[in-house]
Design a protein around this nucleic acid. Structure first.
Lengths: 339, 339
DNA sequence: CTGAAAGCGCTTACAG
DNA sequence: CTGAAAGCGCTTACAG
C-alpha cells in the first residue's frame, strides 16, 4: 500500500540518496537517474512523507495560530492577513481554537507542546504575566496579536485611544448625550473602550452617565454579536431621555443597533469599532482596526524571530482610524478623517 | 537552548525509554523515576517534540481541510461542525486555502503531498473525474464536502431539489413572476440551483424568462456576496415588469437584496439558500443546508476511513429544508415547513 | 553524479 | 519497573 524511499530506490536501482535528491529538486542527479526514479515513483504512487522530511530537516514550515473564537469577524480578517503573508513565505497554517473556559493557559500551553509548528501566533488571548512567562520557557517562537506582554513580539491597537477619539469626534459634532454599546464587561477591549469613552467625556467637561453604557443580554463572543447590539439599542431608545448619538464596542453590535433603529423609526448617529467588511456594505462609520495588517505584521515578526531567536522583543501599537460613512450622516463614500 | 530526550535521561540518571514513558503517562514507571524525570524536564523546560513523536508513532493526529475561500459563510459553518467533531476525537485541524486560479488540481495535490495530516477533508472543490482518480492514487484518506466523486466518501446537499422546492413553494403561494438572483454561472451550486428553479417553473406550466435570472457585477466568492445581491435586486426592481417574488442562490446575496428593497421602498418576498447565522438575525426565509452537520459528518466518515482503509465508499446527500421567516411575510419566528 | 552512513528525536517490543 | 536496541522515513555532509 504505502511505499518508502527504500522501495523506490531498490526498484529504480539507485540509492535512497538519489531518490531524495530527485524529490528535492537537487541539480546533482543525472537525467537518466532522475527519469528512472520519477518513473518508478509514479508507478507506485510514491511521494516523500512530510513528517519524516520535517524531522530530518528539523523544520516543518508550519505556523500555528491560536485563537479563542474562530468564527469571529475580527479574527477572520486578521486571519486573511496571516494567510497572505504565510503563502508568500511558503509556510503552512494551522489553526487552534481555545475553548472559552477557565483553563485557558493550560489549553494554550498544551497546544504549543503538542504542536509541530515552528512558531505560534496567539490572537486575542489574555493571560497573566506569570503565565506568559511560563510560555516563554517553552523556548518556542511566539507572536501576540491584540495583546501585550513584555516577553513576546506583539501587534495591537490602542483601544483606549480609539474610543477616546471616536467619542471626541461625536462631541465635536455637537452631540450631547453620547451612549456606548458595550460587550462583556471583563473583556479587555471592552474595558479599554469604556475607559477611552469616559476619558473623552471627562476631558470635554461632560458627566459620565453610567446608564448610557449598555449591553444586550446575548453575550456570545463576549457580546460582540448583532443581537446584543439590537437589544442594547432597543434599551437605549426606550429610555426617557434617549441618547442623541452612540458608539459601539464593535461593528457587529452596531449593525444590530442599526436594525433596531430602523425598526423603531428613530435614527441617531452611530459609530462602530473594527471596520469589518459588512460595515462597508451597511454604511457604518467606524474606528478602523487594521486587522489584516496586524495579521501579516505578526507573521513578519514571527518569521523573523524564528531566524533570530535572540533578537530584541518588539511591539507595534496601531492607532485606530476613523472612517466616516452614512451612519453618522457623513459622506456616503468611505472617507478617512482622523489618524 | 533546546534539549532532547537524551539530555533529560542523562541528567535524570535514567534511560530515554523511561523519560518517554513518563511523558506518555505509562503506568510502568516508579514514582521515584517519574519524579526525577519530571523535575529535570521542568528544570530544562523540556517537552517531547511532536514531529519526532509522530514519526515514531506513525501518526500525526492531524486532519487537514482544503477549501477555496476561507472567509466564506458556508465554509465557516461547515468548519464549526468539523472543529467540534475533531475536538471530540482529539485530532488537530489544519486549514489550507486553494487560490481561485486555474491549477486547482495541482494545488490540491501538492497540498496533500506536502501535508502531514492523516486525512483530508476537501470542501467545495470541483474537479474532473480523472483528477479525483489521480488524487485517489496518493493513497491518502479523503472525504468530500459539497461535491461528489465515486472515489471518495462524500457529504453534500441536493441543490437541484432545494431550488426546486423553494421555487415550488413560491408558486404555490400564488406568485407569478419569480426571479432568481444567481452567482457566477459556471459555479456548480449556481448551475444546480438554476436547474431546480427552471424545472419547478416548467413543472408548474410556467415559462422560464431568462431575464428574470440575474446577478450583480461583483463576482467575488463566485458572486456569493452582499453587494452582488444588492446590485441584482436593484436591476430587478428597475425592470418594466418587476418580479413579484425572488429566490437567491445564497443568503448573503439575499441580505444584499433586502437592503436594495428597503432603500427603494419596494418589497417583494425573498428566499435565500444556506441559512447562515445572519439570516436568522435579518429574518430571511431560506432553504437550509445543514452546514455544521455536513462538516461533522465528513469528519466522521474520514476518521472511519483512516481506520478502515478498504471500507466501501459511501455518500450522504442532504435535502435542504425550507425555513420561513419574515422575508416571505411568514411567521417571524423560524418555522420549518418542508423537508 | 552517486552511495554509504550518520543523524533527526522520539516510541516500543523485547528481555531482564 | 527498566534499559539496550531497533525502527519510524527521510536529509545531508562526506568521500569518491
Amino acid at each position: 500500500m504505502s511505499h518508502t524511499i527504500y522501495d523506490i530506490a531498490r526498484e529504480a536501482g539507485v540509492s535512497i540518496a538519489t531518490v531524495s535528491r530527485v524529490f528535492n529538486n537537487s541539480e546533482h542527479v543525472s537525467d537518466k537517474s532522475r527519469a528512472k526514479v520519477l518513473a518508478t515513483a509514479n508507478k507506485f504512487g510514491y511521494h516523500p512523507q512530510a513528517i519524516a522530511q520535517n524531522l530530518a530537516r528539523k523544520k516543518s514550515k508550519l505556523i500555528s495560530v491560536i485563537v479563542p473564537v474562530i468564527s469571529n469577524y475580527f479574527f477572520m480578517e486578521v486571519l486573511e492577513g496571516i494567510q497572505d503573508k504565510l503563502a508568500d513565505e511558503d509556510f503552512d497554517l494551522n489553526i487552534y481554537n481555545i475553548k472559552p473556559v477557565d483553563n485557558i493557559f493550560e489549553q494554550v500551553e498544551n497546544t504549543i507542546k503538542r504542536g509541530m509548528a515552528e512558531g505560534y501566533v496567539i490572537v486575542s488571548v489574555h493571560l497573566k504575566d506569570h503565565e506568559w512567562k511560563a510560555l516563554k520557557r517553552l523556548g518556542v517562537p511566539i507572536a501576540l496579536v491584540d495583546e501585550y506582554s513584555s516577553y513576546f513580539d506583539s501587534v495591537s491597537v490602542d483601544s483606549v485611544e480609539g474610543a477616546y477619539n471616536a467619542t471626541k469626534w461625536l462631541i465635536d459634532q455637537g452631540y450631547e448625550r453620547i451612549a456606548m454599546i458595550r460587550g462583556l464587561e471583563n473583556s479587555k477591549p471592552v474595558i479599554d473602550r469604556i475607559t477611552g469613552y469616559k476619558r473623552a467625556l471627562e476631558d470635554s467637561g461632560k458627566m459620565v452617565d453610567e446608564s448610557n453604557i449598555v449591553t444586550g443580554k446575548n453575550l456570545d463572543r463576549d457580546g460582540f454579536n448583532e443581537i446584543n447590539g439590537y437589544e442594547a439599542m432597543s434599551r437605549l431608545l426606550e429610555m426617557e431621555n434617549p441618547p442623541d448619538a452612540c458608539i459601539s464596542n464593535s461593528d457587529v453590535q452596531a449593525i444590530g443597533a442599526m436594525k433596531a433603529m430602523q425598526e423603531s423609526g428613530c435614527q441617531i448617529p452611530i459609530l462602530g469599532f473594527d471596520d469589518i467588511q459588512l460595515s462597508r456594505f451597511f454604511g457604518l462609520s467606524t474606528m478602523r482596526q487594521p486587522m489584516a495588517d496586524m495579521g501579516s505584521m505578526a507573521i513578519e515578526k514571527l518569521l523573523h524571530r524564528i531566524n533570530h531567536r535572540d533578537a530584541k522583543v518588539s511591539h507595534i501599537v496601531y492607532s485606530p482610524e476613523l472612517f466616516l460613512r452614512s451612519s453618522t450622516n457623513g459622506n456616503p463614500e468611505a472617507e478617512k478623517i482622523l489618524s
